[in-house]
Amino acid sequence: MIIQQISVFLENRAGQLAEITSILAGAGINMRALHIAETADYGVLRMIVDKPQRTAALLLEHGFILSMTPVLAVVVPDEPGALGKILTLLARENIDVEYVYSVFGRVQGQACMIFRVADLDRLAALLKDNGMPPALHGELGIQDEQK
């Protein structure tokens, strides 16, 4: 249920992102979600891909610095106030959200958001208890690379 997000160090200069996307395109890797956090000089590219192990290996080979960060994909009904309900729940439980961003496509016919918090197991249990189990790998199109 916990999903591995790939976080890549980006130097703030033209062509860095294009280099990464062309490496992924060349290997037929599809992105499911993407988010960039940046300062004036550098940034971190966070992404969910269909083949995380392969992606990490390829980017390391090309000299990028990266880490695998565990996150949860939360299905959010596509209607006003749905995300607010989840965030209120988290606030009540005193769970601090480090960052959140959305997945490109629909999951279970609904919207879907990537959540990063310190204690993912606690978040997963809380969501399940409230009838919102986190999305599974398959539902996000992430392949099992062990096979």
Binding site: E11, T39, Y42, G43, I65, L66
Partner: peptide, 13 residues
């Protein structure tokens, strides 16, 4: 940047 110094969180970097 080195792998040891990198963090997913910008605040730590």
């Amino acid at each position: 940047m080195t792998p040891e110094m990198f963090s997913d969180q910008l605040s730590q970097v």
